[in-house]
Nucleic acid binder design. Structure first.
Length: 283
DNA sequence: ACCCATGTTCTTTG
DNA sequence: TCAAAGAACATGGG
């Protein structure tokens, strides 16, 4: 779940539920998701008032009244929730914060426990320490072109690299490349300025659309590749209509692996790079 | 029972 | 130094 649009949705939820409230309790059901010692987290949070929220890529920042920042990273299966009474805590709640005024508890939910919770002095310090690039919604086309032009690597792993730009995950990169009609195995520095322009526009389109729908994939436009991904099969049991390209009803979406990650492409929309062309452009 | 998975990070190998 | 591939992490769900 948690790529940029999901994290943005979680951030807005936290902003609504928790800003202005004081943290009066901390439950650690599973310390595995803590990237700081529990005692340090407890000392850093109890009695603090939440003053605001922000986000960089897939990281959510919860700002505290002493200037420090709680950082939430949701790994592969993280989620956020709220509950009033302990028996109502969502399944897989690993950590929860008790909020003074509302009496609600904010839950960090994470079945697979790849998520992490930590404290930092500032969002900027965290960005620097983690070597995170500009947020995918903030990066300009020129900046993207400049970064891609220096790399002789497949474009898909480049877009997944949080140091190049932060926030793009596996399905979004596939969607972006499909919308921009670029093959995932095109070499970074082989992309023309025009192609990078299309890439940048597709990033904006996919992220803003996903945020609008609060990352509920099923509600995305029919023109999106997302509907061809396997996990959507449950929505249309017994049908394989969803495995065809939205633009070419007779062309099947292909599943391959690029950089070790499952990758979906339309062979007609996204022509595979020709090695000779790539090399001549690169040299 | 087996295989796959939205992310990050480290190790190995070239 | 860079890049690619693989593994590890932890666990649920199909």
């Amino acid at each position: 779940m948690p790529e940029l649009p999901e994290v943005e949705t979680y951030r807005r939820f936290i902003d609504e539920v928790a800003v202005g409230q004081t943290i009066t309790g901390l439950d650690v059901n599973d310390a595995h998701v803590l990237a700081v010692p529990e005692a340090e987290l407890r000392a850093g949070l109890l009695g603090r008032t939440i003053t605001g929220t922000s986000r960089l890529g897939k990281n959510c920042f919860v700002e505290l009244d002493n200037g420090r920042v709680l950082v939430l990273h949701f790994g592969m299966t993280g989620d956020i929730g709220a509950y009033r009474d302990a028996p109502d805590a969502p399944r897989f709640t690993r950590v929860a914060w008790h909020l003074s005024d509302s009496g609600l508890n904010l839950a960090f939910i994470d079945p697979r426990k790849f998520g992490r919770i930590r404290l930092t002095d500032s969002a900027e310090a965290y960005q620097k320490a983690k070597k995170l690039g500009p947020d995918a919604l903030q990066i300009t086309a020129a900046e993207l072109h400049q970064k891609l032009s220096r790399r002789r690597v497949f474009v898909k792993p480049l877009l997944l690299d949080q140091g190049l730009t932060a926030g793009l995950g596996n399905w979004i990169v596939d969607e972006v490349l499909f919308q921009a009609k670029i093959h995932p195995e095109r070499i970074g520095n082989s992309l023309s300025e025009k192609e990078v322009g299309a890439l940048h526009a597709a990033i904006q389109l996919v992220l803003t659309t996903a945020i609008q729908h609060e990352a509920n994939y099923r509600n995305f436009p029919k023109s999106f590749l997302i509907h061809a991904r396997e996990w959507d099969e449950s929505a249309t049991p017994g049908s394989d209509a969803h495995t065809f390209c939205p633009r070419h009803p007779k062309v099947k979406i292909e599943k391959t692996y690029v950089g070790g990650r499952a990758t979906y492409t339309c062979p007609k929309c996204q022509p595979a790079p020709v090695a000779a062309v790539e090399e001549s452009k690169a040299s």
